[in-house]
Structures are given as structure tokens and as C-alpha cells.
């Protein structure tokens, strides 16, 4: 317990930990915000202006703006998740490991 408390104090004072936390949270929350924005734009259009979604994509087509919007949000979700996981695994994780190693030395 004693040893754990010491290593925790070491981590807390490590400026790299603070910086990692800031950068990771900024990245995570802005990507999450982006998805929420796209999704609630979709939901609010359904709620208040469903007629916008009913426009065909081109003359003579049945596929409409709503379908493109919906499939677009699905694609964006996958894209954003993959982006985050790549950066977290390549950049954030090695740093967290390093901080951990320093603290547990």
C-alpha cells in the first residue's frame, strides 16, 4: 500500500502525465463531440424537418438525402473509432507505459 501511494504521488507530479491526460482527453472528447453533432443533427432533422430527408439524391432516383445521411453517420462512426484507436495505441499508450515504468522504478 505504502509503495502504491508513493508511485501514485510520483505519477501525479510527473508533468508528462498531465500533458498526456490533457492531449488524450482533448482528442477523445472532440471526436466524441463530432459524432454526437453528426448524430443529433440527423435525429433533429428527423424530428423537425423530415421533409428535407425525403429529397431524392438525383432526378429519377429513389435513394434520398436521408439514406445518404444515415449511412454517412455509420461510416463516420467507424472511421472516427479507428482513428482514435490508432492514435491511442501508437502515441498515447507507449507514453503511459513510460510514465508507469518511471513511477514503479
Amino acid at each position: 500500500m505504502q509503495k502504491h501511494a508513493v508511485s501514485c504521488a510520483l505519477v501525479r507530479e510527473n508533468p508528462r502525465f498531465q500533458s498526456l491526460l490533457r492531449r488524450r482527453n482533448r482528442y477523445a472528447f472532440s471526436l466524441a463531440g463530432l459524432i454526437m453533432l453528426a448524430y443529433f443533427a440527423f435525429i433533429l432533422t428527423i424530428a423537425f424537418r423530415p421533409d428535407w430527408l425525403a429529397h431524392p439524391l438525383a432526378r429519377g432516383m429513389t435513394a434520398n438525402v436521408g439514406i445518404l445521411f444515415g449511412l454517412g453517420v455509420i461510416a463516420l462512426t467507424v472511421l472516427v473509432t479507428v482513428l482514435y484507436v490508432r492514435r491511442a495505441n501508437r502515441e498515447f499508450d507507449p507514453e503511459a507505459l513510460e510514465i508507469r515504468r518511471q513511477a514503479l522504478k
Partner: peptide
């Protein structure tokens, strides 16, 4: 029809929240 897509979209957009947070 279209309402099925609303459910699909809703059920996938939760995943980034799970991943990030």
C-alpha cells in the same frame, strides 16, 4: 422502411462513446 435505418444509426453511434470514454 427508413425508420429501420434510424435504429441502425443509433445503435452504432454509441460505440465511439464506449471507446473514447
Amino acid at each position: 422502411g427508413f425508420d429501420g435505418l434510424v435504429f441502425s444509426v443509433g445503435w452504432i453511434v454509441g460505440w465511439p462513446v464506449v471507446t473514447f470514454l
